[in-house]
Amino acid sequence: MIIALTVLLTVTGFFFFFATTIGLIRFPDFYSRMHAAGKGDTLSSLLMLLGLAIYSLHHFSFGNFLVSLKIIFIMVFIFLASPTATHAIIDAGFESGVKPWTKEEERAEE
């Protein structure tokens, strides 16, 4: 039961990691790449870490419970820090003058 839950959560997280990375490669400009990097990373790492935290409760003992607690602490930290890091990067790009890609300009170039 616990193993099935772990496999389900980690596979889902891995799929979203995969989609994030593909988006990081395929999107046309800096701002839309940041969409993939900021959102996909948060949810997929939360899912994978939750799966691993559940798995470490497999053989219940105080040490394993402490390990799960630490993994949940990492999850809380990522939940708070990932949007902040995304915002810091995109603000740096905006201030230093990276130009966003828009559909109108693409048509104008053609």
Binding site: A81, A85, A88, D91, A92, E95, S96, G97, V98
Partner: peptide, 28 residues
């Protein structure tokens, strides 16, 4: 995880004041 966050924010703050990061200007 802590180091990754600190490094990202620090590097982003450093590049924030680089005017000629990209040849075309946009932004405030």
């Amino acid at each position: 995880a802590l180091l990754n966050f600190i490094a990202t924010v620090g590097a982003a703050r450093y590049f924030q004041h680089r005017k000629n990061l990209c040849s075309v200007g946009f932004g405030l």
